[in-house]
């Protein structure tokens, strides 16, 4: 009976279990990309920071024009800078989660062997 249990467990471990581990790893990557709003920030990379924009006013006034264009450029650059920073952090977090995911999947594959191996090694060390 325990062998039947073990056999069916192993069947699950390398089918549905492995699939679930893979899904978890993928979801973690998506989760980090969503948390750091990577796609959203890409889409609005050069939008003014919190819509802080200066009006050019009616008619042409050189001083006002240069004041507005400078202000708006700063707002967009500041926005782009901060967004880029968060995008980089987000991509880094996602990349780390990819590495962690790959490690996790590998660990998952070896876990059924690792557990008895650790157990036996532990016994050996304990009585060595």
């Amino acid at each position: 009976m325990p062998f039947v249990f073990l056999y069916r467990y192993l069947l699950w471990h390398y089918s549905d279990g492995l699939k679930a581990s893979f899904n978890k790893a993928v979801n973690a990557v998506i989760g980090f990309l969503n948390f750091f709003s990577v796609l959203h920030l890409f889409g609005t990379l050069f939008s003014p920071w919190h819509r802080v924009i200066e009006s050019y006013g009616r008619g042409f006034d050189a001083a006002r024009f240069f004041y507005a264009i400078t202000g708006n450029a700063i707002s967009r650059l500041l926005g782009a800078l901060l967004r880029s920073f968060v995008i980089v952090v987000g991509i880094a977090a996602a990349a780390l989660s990819v590495i962690a995911g790959v490690f996790f999947i590998f660990l998952w594959i070896f876990l059924p062997f690792l557990v008895p191996l650790l157990f036996i090694t532990g016994i050996i060390f304990l009585f060595a």
């Binding site: 978890k24 998506i30 989760g31 750091f36 709003s37 939008s47 819509r51 802080v52 926005g79 967004r83």
Partner: peptide
Amino acid sequence: FLERLESSPGIGKEWAFGY
């Protein structure tokens, strides 16, 4: 943790909108 991460509004989604 993953479920909470997915449903979190996260960082920066309001940056393109005004104060």
